[in-house]
Amino acid sequence: MSGDHSDATIARRVRRLETLLEEKGLLTGGELDEAIDSFLAGASPANGARVVARAWTDAAFRSRLLADGTAAVRELGSMEGSYQRLRVVENTATTHNVIVCTLCSCYPLRLLGPSPSWYKSEAYRSRVVREPRAVLAEFGLELPPGTRITVWDSSAETRYMVLPRRPDGTEGMSEEELAGLVTRNALIGTAVL
């Protein structure tokens, strides 16, 4: 949204602020790079896909995941301490879940990777709580008229992830192959598989 001019201006101001904070001893040289690197390294939709594939293939894990997402996800390692609480909501033949944060942009970063721009947009945030069917149709998702939609507006500390339905004809697939089918939008609820 910014043109080159304002981009250069803000880039200069950010650099100036970094320098000021370093001079005041509030920031050390490598600190920002570290924060950025750990963010980029730890956050990926592959994490969420792995959780989903496990839930599809292990009924006991699925039960634990739906009962206490925080603890179940921890079993798979590498996702410690990311959220105060994770709640996984399951799509069924008659129900569909979709996630939003109308007030800002809360999102289960670790499991889903950096959020897409549309998730942070006013268009998505304003409309999905009011007319979810119309919004999902814009993503190419037409749900049967009888499907009950629940919109989860993340207004506090809990982060939500959708457990999509396992596609038909995937009975013989390995957990790894199944994980490869899971898309980021399916974990948000703006797509099905």
């Binding site: 069917r133 629940t150 919109v151 989860w152 207004s155």
Partner: peptide, 19 residues
């Protein structure tokens, strides 16, 4: 959990907020 019709006067979906 809120029913859409209680929030907007119409709609058949539900909205869940953390309050």
């Amino acid at each position: 959990r809120f029913e859409a019709r209680d929030l907007w006067g119409e709609g058949d979906h539900q909205v869940v907020l953390d309050l």
